[in-house]
Write a protein that binds this DNA or RNA. Structure first.
Lengths: 338, 338
DNA sequence: TATTGACTCCGAAACGTTTCGGGTTATACT
DNA sequence: AGTATAACCCGAAACGTTTCGGAGTCAATA
C-alpha cells in the first residue's frame, strides 16, 4: 500500500539513489531519466516518508509555538490574527507548525528542553516575552534558533518582531491633548510584560511632552481582557477627580472600559473618551467605534517566520529585527473634552 | 552532544534493547535496573528522537488540522476558542497538532493526500463541513481516521462533534415571539455550510411552530463577518415592511447588524431586537449586550480530540458522535416589540 | 593510443528507534 | 539429580530516507 523510494526505483528500473537524487533536484541525473522517474513517482502516488527523511537529515522542517498556559491566549483576536499570519507564511515555506501548551504539571522550561532534545522542531517562536525571560536564556544556552514577538530589554541581540508601542501611545496622547484632555487615565496590563511596559512608557512620555503632571493613581494595572478593563475603569470613575479620557493598552480592555462607562450612563466619545490598541476587527463595530492604534498582526506573524528562517539559514549569525509603527485610527470613541 | 539510546546504554552498562524497554515501561526488566536506567537517562538528559521512533513505529502521534484558505478562519473568536480546546486536549494526551493552510496554488484535496502519504499525522480534524464533502470521501476511501466539527448530512456514520443549532435557533424564535415579535428576519451564512443550513432550518421551524408566515425576502444570505452583517441588515431595514427582530446565525453577523441599526438611529433592544449565535466573549461587552446562544467552544475542541483518539484506538470501528445543546442567554439586545 | 574529464549512475552505510527471537541464569519442582 | 519455569537480558534486523565514495561510458584532448 505504502509507496517507498524502493518501489519507485523498481518501477522505474533505477537505483534508489538515483531516484532520490532525481526527486530532490540534483544535477547529476540525466534530464530524460529524471522525467521518467518523476513520472513513475507521481504515477504510483509516491510521497517521501517525512519521518525517515527527518531522521536522516536531522532537520524537522518545523517550528514550535508553545502557548503560555495563562489568561489571554487564544481568546484575544489579536493573537488569532498573528497566528493566522504565522501559519500562512509557514505553509508558504512548506514547513510545519507545532503548537502546544504546557499541561498542568509541566514546567515551562522542561517542555522547551523536551522539544529541543527530541528533535521535534528546529526553531521556536516566542510569545509574550518578559524581562529576563528564562526561555531566551535557555534557548541561547542551547544555541537553538528562535525569534521573539516583542523585544526583550535585557537580551538585546536577538531576532524579534515588535511594534513601536511607545511612539504609538505617544501619538494617542497627542490626539487626546489636541482634543483638550488634560486628565488622562491609563489601563495597563501586568507590567512584567515588556509590551505593556513599553506602552505605559509611551503614556508617561506623552504626558511629559505636553507638560502634564503624572498621577500614579490614574494608572491601573489589571489583566488582559474586557472584564479587567471594566473593573479598572470603575475604579477610575470613582476617583475623586476622575479622568476625562482613558487610554487602554489593548482593545479588549478598551471595550471593557466602554462598557463600564456606558453602564454609568456616560456617553463615550462625549462625556468620556476611550482609546484602544491593536486595531482588532471588532474595534470598528462596537458602538461608538473605537479610536485605536492599529498594528498589522497578520503581517507581523508572517514576519516572525521570515525572521526565524533567516536566523536558521545563517546558522544564528544573523538576527533580524523588525519594528513596525502603529497607525492611529480616529473613530468616535474620542471627542473633545467637556 | 545529542544523547541517544546507545549513550544511555553505555553509561548504564546495559544493552540498547533493555534501555529501550525499561524506558517504555515493559515488564521484562528488573525494577532495580529500570531505576538505574531511568536515573542515568535523566542524568544525561536523554529524550527519545521522535523521528526515529516515528519511522520505526509508523505512527506520528500527531493530528492534522488543515484550515480552509477562506474568509473567516482565525478572526472568528469562536474558532479561536475551539482551537484552544483542541490544543489543550492534544497537549494533555502528549500528542502534537499540525496546523497548515493550503497555499495559493495547492489543491485542497492534494494537501490531504500529501499528508496521508508522508505519514505526517495519523488523524485529521475537519472544520466547516459542507454537503458531499470531498474531504470526507477522500479520507474514507483511504481509510484514514478523522473527526468532523459539524456533522455531514450525507455521510452519516462518521465521528463528529456538533451543536444542535436547529433547536437552538428554535428557542431563540420562541424567545422573540414571547416578546411579541411576529416579523423576524434572518442573517445566514452561505448555505453550502451544513452548520448554516441547520440554523436556518431552526429559524424556519420556529416560525412554523408559531404559525408565522415564512417570507423568503427576510432571509439574507451573506458571508461570515461583521461587514456582511452590516450590509445584510441595511437591506433588511430598507425592506418595505422591515422586520422588528433579526436573528443572526453567528455573533459577528449580529454585531455587524447592531452597528447598522445604530447607524440609522435605531435603539437596539427597543426599536429593533437582534440576536446572535456562539456566545463569544465579546457578545457580553458590546452595547447593548447581545442576546445569543452560547456553545462551549473550548469543550467542543477538547471533545474533537477525544473522539478522534477513540476512532484511532478502535481502528475506525467506533465513531463517536457528540451533540451539545446551545444555551440561550438573554441580554439587552432583545426587547418587546413596539 | 592513452589520458582526461564530464556525465550518469549505483552500493552501502548511516540516522536512532523498536521488536522479534532467542539466550542465560537461578529457582522450583519431580 | 535432572528438568521445567520464570525472570531478566541481549543481538540484530528493520523502518525509509540521504549521501559518500566510487565506477562505468563516451567524447574530447594530448
Amino acid at each position: 500500500m505504502k509507496i517507498t523510494l524502493k518501489d519507485v526505483a523498481n518501477a522505474a528500473g533505477m537505483s534508489v539513489t538515483t531516484v532520490s537524487r532525481a526527486l530532490n533536484g540534483f544535477d547529476d541525473v540525466a534530464e530524460i531519466t529524471r522525467d521518467h522517474i518523476m513520472h513513475t513517482a507521481s504515477e504510483l502516488g509516491y510521497a517521501p516518508n517525512l519521518n525517515a527523511r527527518r531522521l536522516k537529515t536531522q532537520r524537522a522542517d518545523a517550528f514550535g509555538l508553545i502557548v503560555p498556559n495563562e489568561d489571554l491566549r487564544f481568546s484575544d483576536p489579536f493573537f488569532s490574527e498573528l497566528l493566522s499570519g504565522i501559519i500562512d507564511q509557514i505553509s508558504e515555506y512548506g514547513l510545519e507548525l507545532n503548537i502546544t501548551t504546557p499541561t498542568e504539571k509541566e514546567q515551562y522550561e522542561e517542555i522547551y528542553l523536551k522539544y529541543i532534545r527530541s528533535r521535534r522542531v528546529d526553531g521556536f517562536i516566542l510569545l509574550r516575552t518578559v524581562e529576563n525571560d528564562p526561555r531566551i536564556a535557555l534557548l541561547q544556552k542551547h544555541n537553538f534558533p528562535f525569534v521573539c514577538f516583542g523585544r526583550s530589554g535585557d537580551a538585546s541581540d536577538i531576532s524579534f518582531v515588535d511594534e513601536d508601542g511607545e511612539t504609538g501611545i505617544r501619538q494617542m496622547i497627542d490626539h487626546l491633548v489636541s482634543l483638550g484632555h488634560t486628565r488622562i487615565g491609563c489601563l495597563a496590563e501586568p507590567r512584567t510584560l515588556i509590551k505593556s511596559r513599553q506602552r505605559v512608557q509611551g503614556y508617561l512620555d506623552g504626558l511629559q511632552a505636553h507638560g502634564l503632571p503624572i498621577d500614579e493613581s490614574l494608572i491601573v494595572e489589571g489583566r488582559f481582557r474586557q472584564k479587567s478593563g471594566q473593573e479598572s475603569t470603575e475604579r477610575l470613575l470613582n476617583h475623586v477627580d476622575p479622568p476625562t479620557a482613558i487610554v487602554a493598552v489593548n482593545d479588549l480592555l478598551a471595550i471593557g472600559a466602554m462598557s463600564a462607562a456606558q453602564e454609568r450612563g456616560l456617553v463615550v466619545g462625549k462625556d468620556i473618551s476611550i482609546t484602544g490598541f491593536d486595531g482588532i476587527p471588532l474595534s470598528e463595530y462596537v458602538t461608538p467605534a473605537l479610536t485605536t492604534l492599529h498594528i498589522p498582526a497578520h503581517e507581523m506573524g508572517q514576519q516572525l517566520c521570515k525572521n526565524l528562517v533567516q536566523v536558521m539559514n545563517s546558522n544564528g549569525q544573523e538576527r533580524p529585527k523588525t519594528v513596525v509603527q502603529p497607525k492611529l485610527i480616529v473613530r468616535n470613541s474620542t471627542g473633545s473634552a467637556e
